[in-house]
Simulated scan of single mutants.
Amino acid sequence: MPSTRRSLLQIATALAVSTTWSIGALAQSTWPSKPLTMIVPFPPGGVADTVARPVAEALSRELKQTVVVENRAGAGGAVGIGHVARAPADGYTVLLSLSSISILPEADALLDRKPAYQMNQFKPIARFTADPTVLVVRADAPWKNMAEFLADAKAKPAAYNYGSSGNYGTMHVPMEMLKNTAGFRMTHIPYTGAGPAIVALLAGQVDAIATGPSTVAQQIKAGKLRALAHWGDRPLASLPEVPSLTQLGYPVRFAQWSGLFVPAATPDDVIARLRTAAARAAVDPAVVQVIEKAGSPIAYLDAPDFQAYWDADARTMTGAVRRIGKVE
C-alpha cells in the first residue's frame, strides 16, 4: 500500500477509535480548560521547531485552547525532554521530539551518568514526519559528489569537521554510522541544535552536517548549500536527484523523525483527545503546506503504530550508540 494512502487510513482509524472512546469518557471532561505548552527540546530553526509550530497552531484550533511552543534546548535535547518527563501528567505539557529521544538514555548509561529521563516515562501520541538525514556541504566546497567527499576525507584524516545538534543527537549518530561504514575520519563539533549547526556551516566554521531535508532545502534551492547523499531507502521528494548512501554502496540508514509525546501517566481520555487532534492536524492543509514546503512530507502514524515504530527504531539507535562509544 502506498505510504500516503496508508497514512490516510491510519488517520481515519485514529479518528474513529478516539471518537468512539471519547463518547463516554469525555462527556463530563473539561479538558482542556487552559492553554497547553508544547516543549521543543532544541533551538528554533531545526526540524523539531519546523514541525512544532504549524502543528501547535492546528492543535490550538482543534482543542479550542492555545498551544504555546516553548524551546528548551540543551544537552542534545535532554534538557527539554527531561523537563516533560517530570511535568504533571495532566495533558497540559506535551513534547514535540525527534528520534534523539531514543538515543539519549543509552548515551547517559554509556557515560555512567544519571539519565535525564527514561523512554518508559512517555506515551506516544502521533508521528508527523520521518525523513532520512541528508549530508550537506557549502556550495563553494570542493566536493561535487559523495565520491569526491569520501576520497578527500580519507586522504586527509581528521582534516575536516562536521557540526551537529549535540553529542549523540540526530545529526551526530548518522555521521558516526557513515564514518564507521565508509572508513574515514572527521572531527565532530557539537552545537546546541540544528539551527546553530546550519549557521556554522553557512559561515564556514564546519565543513559538513547531516540534517533533515526540511532544515536545508531552501538553502540548497538558493544555491548556498549542496546535498551529496541521504540516509534513506527511496528518492526524496524534495531532493529527487540526491542519491542514497545505500545506492552508493554504503548500507547505512537513519530517519530523523518527529513525534508528539505526553508523560506516561496522562489519563487515557486526555490521550484519546490528543490523538484525535493530532490526526486532524496531520491532514490540516496549513500544516501540510508548511511542512511540505520545507521539504518534509507528512508521514503520520497514530499512537499504536507509532509505538511499534519507536520500539524498533530505539533498538537500532541503541546499537549505534554503543558502537560510537564514549564521547565526552
Results as ranks from 00 to 15, higher is better:
residue 274 L to P: 02
residue 260 L to M: 14
residue 272 A to E: 02
residue 112 D to V: 06
residue 100 S to V: 14
residue 310 W to Q: 11
residue 206 V to H: 08
residue 230 H to G: 02
residue 133 T to W: 00
residue 198 I to R: 11
residue 28 Q to T: 12
residue 64 K to C: 05
residue 39 I to E: 01
residue 49 D to A: 04
residue 249 G to K: 13
residue 155 A to V: 04
residue 141 A to D: 09
residue 4 T to F: 04
residue 152 D to K: 13
residue 211 T to E: 15
residue 33 S to D: 07
residue 55 V to P: 08
residue 123 K to V: 14
residue 291 I to R: 07
residue 215 T to I: 14
residue 182 A to V: 12
residue 273 R to S: 01
residue 291 I to T: 02
residue 250 Y to H: 15
residue 140 D to L: 07
residue 160 Y to T: 08
residue 262 V to S: 11
residue 221 K to Y: 01
residue 308 A to W: 07
residue 297 P to C: 07
residue 173 V to W: 12
residue 123 K to P: 00
residue 156 K to R: 15
residue 324 I to E: 03
residue 270 V to K: 15
residue 235 P to A: 01
residue 195 G to N: 10
residue 105 P to N: 00
residue 186 M to A: 01
residue 188 H to K: 11
residue 163 G to F: 05
residue 66 T to S: 09
residue 223 G to N: 08
residue 76 G to C: 07
residue 175 M to C: 10
residue 312 A to P: 00
residue 283 V to T: 15
residue 83 H to T: 04
residue 109 A to V: 11
residue 178 L to C: 07
residue 29 S to I: 06
residue 320 A to E: 06
residue 153 A to E: 09
residue 256 Q to R: 00
residue 203 A to P: 06
residue 8 L to N: 13
residue 87 A to K: 07
residue 6 R to C: 05
residue 184 F to S: 06
residue 72 R to P: 00
residue 185 R to I: 03
residue 259 G to T: 03
residue 294 A to V: 03
residue 325 G to W: 09
residue 188 H to S: 11
residue 114 K to I: 13
residue 198 I to L: 14
residue 251 P to L: 13
residue 118 Q to I: 08
residue 200 A to T: 06
residue 245 L to M: 12
residue 100 S to E: 05
residue 234 R to G: 01
residue 1 M to T: 03
residue 123 K to Q: 15
residue 112 D to L: 10
residue 178 L to F: 14
residue 210 A to I: 14
residue 231 W to K: 03
residue 111 L to E: 14
residue 93 T to I: 09
residue 148 E to L: 03
residue 152 D to E: 13
residue 53 R to T: 08
residue 193 G to C: 05
residue 34 K to R: 15
residue 81 I to N: 03
residue 267 P to I: 11
residue 117 Y to H: 05
residue 230 H to V: 02
residue 272 A to F: 04
residue 33 S to A: 10
residue 309 Y to K: 11
residue 16 A to T: 10
residue 19 T to P: 06
residue 28 Q to A: 11
residue 215 T to G: 09
residue 233 D to N: 09
residue 236 L to D: 01
residue 112 D to A: 14
residue 57 E to M: 13
residue 266 T to F: 08
residue 260 L to P: 07
residue 281 A to C: 10
residue 299 A to S: 13
